[in-house]
């Protein structure tokens, strides 16, 4: 049961972090909640599709299909997060009708892509380790506990961000989203290295003695910063490149925000 708790909690926490920060940010912008509906539909549908076609998916590209799907989903999330950040300054300065369809689209794509991968992993785990191996009760109750704890933490993250007030909430969530986005990009690079599409010979450091990836701290840092105990040079390059883009976008945001603080206080 503990294994189920840990595995599900890790997946749920990763997905909740993206979704709740995006939700808080969109709330501060005055977006409607309706975008959660397509996210739920896409996420659950996509995850079921992914989980039920796992074998076929794995066999694609000489058995590297699953890695490539993960890379695709991670990059989709990372890219749409950056796209969201790129639009923030424009939306904030536009005083009349704030949230544009493009912004809604980036919200939906980022959240749905993040959830598809995590949900699919949870489905596969529950099915193969629980139902198929006669361990339904412990695995399902472990999964419920893990998911419950993960969602609850997500709720606290959401209200914590809202509690900061509109302006601070937007700033903090923008910083968090750029970190998460960069983390996703570096994770995608890692998958590419693992499946042999990138060389990945140089491991820059090994900090597993300090923070193990499988420890709670490691998991949290992994979800938030894309922490990797043994990062390759390509991973670091992609990570910092994404972060740099995000910082450039955010710099524009902070300049605009100081001018348009009052426009948000409606």
């Amino acid at each position: 049961m503990i294994d189920a708790v840990v595995i599900v909690l890790r997946e749920v926490l990763e997905a909740m972090l993206v979704c709740c920060v995006l939700l808080a940010s969109s709330y501060a912008l005055g977006a409607k909640r309706i975008w959660l509906l397509p996210v739920t539909l896409f996420a659950v549908g996509g995850a079921l599709l992914y989980a039920t076609n796992l074998t076929a998916l794995t066999d694609l590209f000489d058995g590297r299909g699953q890695e490539l799907t993960n890379v695709l989903l991670l990059m989709l999330t990372g890219a749409s997060l950056l796209f969201y950040l790129a639009q923030l300054p424009g939306v904030i300065t536009q005083k009349t009708s704030g949230v544009t369809p493009a912004l809604y689209a980036s919200l939906i794509v980022a959240s749905a892509a993040a959830m598809v991968r995590e949900l699919a992993e949870i489905f596969i785990y529950i099915f193969s380790y629980g139902i198929a191996s006669g361990q339904t009760a412990p695995v399902v109750s472990g999964a419920v506990i893990g998911a419950g704890v993960g969602v609850s933490l997500g709720i606290f993250i959401f209200f914590g961000l809202l509690w900061l007030g509109k302006r601070r909430c937007l700033q903090v969530s923008a910083v968090l989203l750029s970190l998460i986005g960069a983390g996703m990009m570096s994770q995608a690079t890692r998958f590419l290295v693992q499946s042999g599409f990138l060389p990945g010979e140089h491991i820059v450091w090994d900090s597993s003695w300090l923070i193990s990836e499988s420890s709670l701290t490691g998991e949290l840092l992994h979800a938030l910063l894309g922490y990797d105990a043994t990062p390759g040079i390509e991973q670091l390059a992609v990570y910092f490149a994404s972060l740099l883009i995000a910082i450039l976008l955010l710099r524009k945001l902070s300049v605009n925000q100081s001018l348009d603080v009052d426009s948000l206080r409606h």
Binding site: V5, Y27, I145, G148, V149, V151, S152, I155, F159, L162
Partner: peptide, 27 residues
């Protein structure tokens, strides 16, 4: 956000955290 949603969600989240974590400890 409405007071009802805020109270309901945070209270349930708190209940889940406390009861599930103590269940894990008990386990």
């Amino acid at each position: 956000i409405s007071i009802r949603w805020f109270l309901t969600l945070t209270l349930i989240a708190l209940l889940v955290l406390v009861s599930f974590l103590s269940s894990l400890r008990g386990y």
